[in-house]
Design a protein around this nucleic acid. Structure first.
Lengths: 184, 184
DNA sequence: GTCTATAAGACGATAGAC
DNA sequence: GTCTATCGTCTTATAGAC
């Protein structure tokens, strides 16, 4: 993963197994291609249901568990996508900045859901927005810092066992952090 | 923050308010400069005491709280440094990879400290390495995803109030996640 | 639609005067 | 040590034949 400047059109063409000229037949500029890819990924990213899921009648425990599971699956299975977005945000989000407002709306809806859980006594009184940051930080770390994580785990890819263990530990950790009882 | 390929020597020279030629008087190649900066930051990064702090007699609660506080301060005060390392790791850590072994040793020592806490009943039985990943993921997110976080908080920089609130919420969240009693 | 060839410019690095 | 000028290379993008 190298971001916009770190990748050449030649490399893109090579990986697509087409010529550079052919690539330019389909796209106008490299920037445009980058922007398109980025927006596609970000849409997929934002639309990952953040608690206002299937039915609003899910318990806090069920909804949060499911969201963590989905986010971790995304990190395990499509780390490249996570990384592309990460580089864009690290760089100050010159392109995605405009779309933050869209995300804000999604998040506001999720904030209200969390507030309801808190009122109902399903979880502790935690700032919902900060809770999202923590969940994002943890789950995305397994994609973005893949090399470091795997190096320390002594592997070169996440085995099915690794995934289960991580998912289980992370879920229980976050649920406890939310003050949601660990036992069934 | 743009990584190695994303920054031109011209930009570096401009920001240093010297000419491009003068820059090349002090450094040989751009790669060399990048490597030097990276290794300096990473050393500072790794040496941030990870639990095997001052005295080994610190309680789990005190040691973890202190570490979170230090990491968050670093994220708030020197986000650029965090970002440079983040980009390097996102890119597969071509340069830092060799130094991972050093970090592994630091981490192994910290793992033993955590194991002791668990044996003593100071905290729940959590995989220490995964715990580190979660703490790193959360704390670094406030630096690396700065734009996104601040955009959602409705600010353009972390105020003293923001910092206190984040630090307090994050610390309590993680301590609860570790099964360490919230009250005094 | 797909190719070869090349234009046009950006960039890292150096030469050489002062 | 610091400057101006420039070389050589890499890269994006286009022109034009087929």
């Amino acid at each position: 993963m190298h971001g916009l400047a770190g990748t050449t059109t030649q490399a893109i063409a090579d990986r697509s197994k087409i010529s550079k000229a052919k690539l330019h037949y389909y796209i106008d500029t490299k920037d445009e291609l980058y922007r398109k890819i980025l927006e596609d990924i970000y849409d997929e990213w934002v639309e990952m249901e953040l608690f206002h899921s299937a039915g609003n009648d899910l318990s806090a425990k069920a909804a949060i568990s499911r969201y963590i599971s989905e986010k971790l699956d995304f990190s395990f299975e499509q780390p490249e996508k996570s990384k592309i977005v990460a580089i864009e945000i690290l760089s100050g989000a010159p392109i995605l900045k405009e779309q933050f407002s869209e995300q804000k709306q999604h998040t506001q809806r999720a904030v209200r859901v969390v507030r309801r859980w808190i009122k109902r006594g399903e979880m502790l009184d935690i700032d919902p927005t900060l809770l999202f940051f923590m969940i994002w930080g943890i789950t995305q770390h397994f994609a973005d810092a893949e090399v470091e994580v795997q190096s320390m785990l002594g592997t070169t890819s996440y085995s099915a066992k690794d995934r289960e263990r991580i998912k289980s530990e992370v879920t229980r950790f976050i649920l406890r952090g939310c003050g949601i009882s660990d036992s069934e």
